[in-house]
């Protein structure tokens, strides 16, 4: 990797200040994507601003109404251990391996918006709100295509808030090499309807499968989606599976998530 300076602020304001001054800086969460990128010399920031020293951005909190708030710098391992919320702790517990889970953070994962990452599916299906140093962003507005989000330059995810949900389940089908999601489907049943979010499958990144949501609103059973067609035009096709295979998996996994929810 190229040489860079490292800052490790302890307050959000200080981090934001560092990220907006004249030095070319990049925020560093758990570094599970950024550090390998630097090692391959594919990025060359002058400065990294680590967010892991900011205590106010860490932790998992549930209120009595069932709302869950997770600090942006909270590791997957901590979410896996503490999130008393349907689907979420299992999701976190199956990201990567123990080394990844003890370093990687929810904020880092969401800001990166890898098209095969798990968290985007949960956030989108659970209609979560992404809190930053500047504002709150609804999940439907946050994800804007693979590796693209609504975050402005220098904007930091400080927390993610998940509203109470009736029931939810995440089904992840592993890409055999990376063990990212070849396809992952998060199904959530809210008071005001069902949301189905799909990761791993589309060239546009995480998306909601609206036809399945409609069908499941009428009949929350695996059979409800069995007859649906999954749009496969934008599906990823690679060494590990064709677009048609991914489209097929979306349907299978949606049915399994409904059955397990």
């Amino acid at each position: 990797m190229y040489e860079f300076d490292l800052e490790r602020p302890t307050r959000v304001e200080d981090a934001v200040k560092l990220l907006s001054d004249s030095v070319e800086s990049q925020p560093l969460g758990g570094g599970q994507t950024l550090i390998p990128t630097l090692k391959q010399r594919l990025a060359s920031p002058e400065r990294l601003v680590s967010l892991t020293g900011i205590d106010s951005m860490k932790g998992v909190f549930t209120d009595r109404g069932g709302t869950l708030r997770i600090g942006g710098a909270t590791t997957h391992a901590e979410v896996a251990a503490k999130a008393a919320y349907p689907g979420l702790s299992e999701l976190a517990a199956n990201i990567g391996d123990p080394a990844v889970r003890n370093r990687g953070t929810i904020g880092g994962s969401l800001a990166n918006n890898d098209p095969a990452a798990c968290y985007p599916a949960a956030v989108l299906a659970l209609n979560a709100t992404i809190g930053t140093n500047a504002r709150e962003i609804a999940a439907d507005d946050f994800f804007q295509g693979m590796f693209t989000t609504a975050l402005e330059e220098g904007e930091i995810i400080t927390n993610v808030t998940f509203p109470a949900v009736r029931t939810a389940n995440y089904q992840k089908f592993l890409q055999p090499a990376s063990r990212f999601a070849l396809v992952g489907v998060f199904v959530a049943k809210h008071d005001d309807g069902v949301r189905v979010a799909v990761t791993g499958a589309s060239n546009d990144g995480v998306f909601r499968w609206s036809a399945a949501e409609e069908a499941l609103n009428g009949d929350f059973s695996p059979d409800a989606v069995a007859g649906l067609d999954v749009p496969d035009g934008d599906m990823i096709s690679d060494l590990h599976g064709s677009g048609a295979y991914r489209a097929h998996l979306v349907k299978v996994l949606t049915g399994r998530a409904v059955a397990a929810a």
Partner: peptide, 8 residues
């Protein structure tokens, strides 16, 4: 024999 190949 990946899942994709077997399914195919």
């Amino acid at each position: 024999l990946t899942p994709a190949r077997v399914w195919s």
